[in-house]
Design a binder for these strands. Structure first.
Length: 430
RNA sequence: UCCGGAGUAGCUCAAUGGGAGAGCGGGUGGCUGUUAACCACUAGGUUGGGGGUUCAAGUCCCUCCUCCGGAGCCA
């Protein structure tokens, strides 16, 4: 007898198959039982009728609690009344485990309760939709770079020093030496770009910041391309192509999931090139026009980003921030040395920053000065400075936060559902 | 760290300072096509901990704990 996964069940119409899965819900009426069985690929309604099965099987179907693991054997039949269009006319049931007290019921629960049971919450249809789109987003991101002949070059997780001086790092004991968990693969990608021309990394990033907001995770994933012989303009071009490609890919492949999430896809359909590009100065003007008390020279706060991202109907790129608020490795604009050749991309609908990047300082002397100015330990950057001694070239790159991008595309109000096991300031478990 | 909010049944929540309740979930029974099924019955509580005011505290005051999200920082 054929074993079938639920997403391919239509191929077996008229045949008797076995489906192995878990009971997601159950309804009954008189001498008929409706078992909703999920197997990870989908959900199918299995109909247990007293007339069709033994008394033992019929009584067994009454004892099955939510998430009981089981194998259902039955005839595949198209039926308009069945969710999904197909149902299983059950002839036999084999139980792997009878469950009576599954904690997550089909009714409402609070997020704290659900997060405490995240390992079980992953079984729900909403979480399935989000995490399948996450999978699709990562697939699209890799495809985008792979198709453009980028080399995937993994950056290390343990690093000897801060990439950016300001943020807090997780410190670990590395055989008696101090080591930190990475907060960006960028510096290593710069080495990679000088070796391979076009590279990207995709991995976890750690920030020991005591952030308690819906936009922050302690551990999150970034995809970071770096390109040799590329300037800020080329970098913005790449970022724009990249985001447009990802959104198009998800719209094309994940309609079902977006529907489960009740995501209004109209705003996503507008995410096509060209994206608006405004300078920091223009952004400040917009904030002032909208009644904010923003002062030139500051970085944008969460509220400012929300205002700016709601101003446009597609992602907006803001470039050339004051160098003083940006990291040491940013190259200054030769037309105005107070500005850095950097850019951020803000997602629309109030979601805010999803990309940060720019052109890197490629001059040895200027870079040494910047490291001094930021009070960073010069000896930690000797290898990085080598890149400016041996064949330095203009180069640029950026980092895209997977979870923030996913949160925007899925239309979520909080980052915590965009990663299977979120790490938040007060959550290390499960 | 600062500001604000919340802790009551397994879950989601109600309850003028005066009898601790509902819906869901669990259990029992009913219904031969259910769609978060429905109907009836039933069990289930140290109201986050400690202290105080009061004839009387889930409710008012103090304190501690836990959680939530906002600021800061950033993707």
């Amino acid at each position: 007898m054929e074993k079938s996964y639920i997403n391919t069940i239509s191929r077996f119409e008229g045949q008797v198959v076995r489906v192995m899965g878990w009971l997601s819900n159950k309804r009954s009426s008189g001498s008929i039982r409706f078992l909703l069985v999920r197997d990870g690929t989908g959900i199918i309604q299995a109909v247990v009728s007293r007339a069709d099965v033994s008394t033992a099987v019929f009584e067994l179907s009454d004892q099955l609690g939510q998430e009981s693991s089981l194998e259902v054997q039955g005839l595949v039949r198209a039926d308009r009344r069945a969710p999904g269009g197909y149902e299983l006319v059950v002839s036999d049931i084999t139980v792997f485990q009878l469950v009576q007290d599954y904690p997550i019921t089909p009714k409402e629960h609070g997020t704290t309760f659900l997060m405490d049971r995240r390992h079980l919450w992953l079984r729900s249809s909403r979480q399935h939709a989000i995490l399948k789109i996450r999978h699709g987003l990562i697939t699209a991101a890799r495809k985008f770079f792979d198709d453009r002949d980028f080399v995937l070059l993994d950056a290390p997780i343990f690093t000897p020093a801060a990439c950016e001086g300001t943020t807090t790092l997780f410190e670990t004991d590395y055989f008696g030496e101090r080591a930190y968990l990475t907060q960006s693969g960028q510096l290593y990608m710069e080495a990679g770009a000088m070796a391979f021309g076009k590279v990207y990394c995709f991995g976890p990033t750690f920030r020991a910041e005591k952030s308690k907001t819906r936009r922050h995770l302690i551990e999150f994933w970034m995809i970071e391309p770096e390109v040799a012989y590329c300037d800020l303009e080329g970098d913005m071009e790449l970022a724009e192509d990249f985001v447009a490609f990802i959104v198009e890919w998800i719209l094309h492949h994940y309609q079902t999931e977006l529907k489960v999430l009740e995501r209004d896809i109209e705003p996503l359909e507008k995410v096509i090139k060209p994206f608006p590009r405004i300078s920091y100065d223009e952004a400040v003007d917009i904030l002032k026009q909208k009644g904010g008390s923003f002062e030139w020279g500051n970085d944008f706060g969460g509220g400012d980003e929300t205002v700016l991202s709601q101003t446009f109907d597609r992602p907006v790129i803001i470039h050339r921030y004051p160098a003083s608020v940006k990291a040491f490795y940013m190259k200054n604009d030769h037309q105005n040395p107070d500005l850095a050749l950097c850019m951020d991309m803000l997602a629309p609908e109030g979601y805010g920053e999803i990309i940060g990047g720019g052109q890197r300082e490629d001059d040895l002397g200027a870079l040494v000065e910047k490291i001094k100015k930021h009070n960073l330990p010069m000896e930690a950057f000797d290898w990085y400075l080598d890149l400016r001694k041996y064949g330095t070239v203009p180069h640029a790159g950026f980092g895209l936060g997977i979870e923030r991008t996913l949160s925007w595309i899925c239309g979520l109000s909080h980052l915590r559902e965009t990663i299977p096991f979120p790490r938040l300031i007060y959550r290390l478990k499960p």
